[in-house]
Amino acid sequence: MGAIDTLLLIVGVVIKLVVVFAVAMLHVAYATYFERKVIAHMQIRLGPMEVGWHGLLQPIADGVKLLFKEDVIPAKADRYVFMIAPMICFFAATSSLVVFPFFEGFNLGPYHVGGALANINIGLLFVLAMSSLGAYGVVMAGWASNSKYAFLGGLRSSAQVISYEISLGLSLVGVMMLAGSLNLTDIVHAQERAGMWNFIPQFLGFSIFCIAALAETNRTPFDLPEAESELVAGYFTEYTGFRFALFFLAEYMGMLIMAALGTVCFLGGWNPIPGLEKIIPGGVWWFLVKVYTLFFMYYWVRTTLPRYRYDQLMSLGWKVMIPIALANIFLTGLWKVYFA
């Protein structure tokens, strides 16, 4: 490989990184807008209406506001840990983006542009690893703030993320078994070949995945780490300005990752709904439609359900979700042995 090729490779990767990061950030920003609008209309109100047409510039205004706010670090806080914690959260959430295949990939002259930034063979494992890394940021934030509310929030969050990570991982084992691979692109191709998206044969896994994803991203009804009525704001009680924004972005990025993971593993990735491929061929738009459908489910659940109590959440995670996820693996194994 010549020097020019290497240079092209590097330039290509940088361009792809910038594009994916920028587009993902934009989607995260507008996911907050989408959430506010959806929830508002479910609750017979209008949501943001002031900034821009129907409040369309609201996420940008929010971002600008947070950027210009004073960055307060409490006097008794562990300064450096306090400063690093939101970065860990944000980094862990964002880095998962690189393995997702958003579309099938296309040829640009002699070069093949892949649908994923890094089409690695342990993609699924990488996503799970990164999402659990985010728990460190939360625990560090809770500890370093030197506030009891933040501390309790951090404790709750770490316990929750660890317990639900198990069921999240187990719910995806069935998908791995069906695809025979941890590569996310392969998982999508396996669904293409099977002619059936995984949420049909893996409906148990999909249900467990949806519930665990809610818990993993601290969303209602599992939003205990930041339960407003109990812990004020949980682990980021003491955070202001852009550090707060980083947590906020990390949370929504986490939602995006979970929705994307659900799309890839259970909903056929970039493939169109069967029967519609003639009208709209497969591509990144189908991926986005599925991601936003899952987003909508997040919001729907948020408007509908109350919040679990800490111990109830734990017993649900350990006594219900994990056994079902294990049973799902067993059933998938039987199916593979006798029918496939």
């Binding site: 479910m42 609750q43 017979i44 209602t220 009804p221 408007t303 359900l305 109350p306």
Partner: peptide, 16 residues
């Protein structure tokens, strides 16, 4: 009461 327990929508319905 509902908002405290996390059911946010009841809050706005009741205010209507």
């Amino acid at each position: 009461h509902a908002l405290d327990i996390g059911a946010m929508t009841v809050f706005l319905y009741a205010f209507r």
